[in-house]
Amino acid sequence: MKQHTLSVLVENRAGVLSRVTGLFSRRGFNIESLAVGTCEEEGTSRITIVVFGDDREVEQVIKQLNKLIDVIKVSDLTERARVERELALIKVSADPGGTRAEVMQIATIFRSQVIDVGSKTVTLEVTGDSDKIDALQRLLVPYGIRELYRTGRIAVLRGQKTVKSEK
């Protein structure tokens, strides 16, 4: 059992996300994370899905996804050289006279941006792989995380290769 990162190119039609997520629930596959957005070609979207399962299960996930008419291509990036990113927005307690400086210092170390400041909070934006965001999150817990927003993971192959150009 391990995490697989799947890149799914789909026709951007009404209901396509519902088809994809419905397939996962119906066949008992677990989605760890999911990110959807338009991509370089008009009319298509890319869904990055992280699933947890053994190779046989994931093979079945890929085959079932491929059966959906609106799915153009499914690529398993798991064993490939790739860059993965998630984005998190974290609103954390930070008193001007107290912990604010420490929080800002941690933010700097993680190359995260302060995107908003309140009278008793700062809001940080951080991008990176899951481990980095987990680490920052752990460090901020003692200061009091008011709210945390994490996107799903997106991933891109390293080098010249693109998911679309592959057969």
Binding site: A14, G15, R19, G22, L23, R26, L68, I69
Partner: peptide
């Protein structure tokens, strides 16, 4: 019915 039949059709249209 589009949503209802999604898991029991090969494809469907609204």
């Amino acid at each position: 019915i589009h949503g209802i039949t999604m898991p029991i059709t090969k494809h469907n249209y609204l």
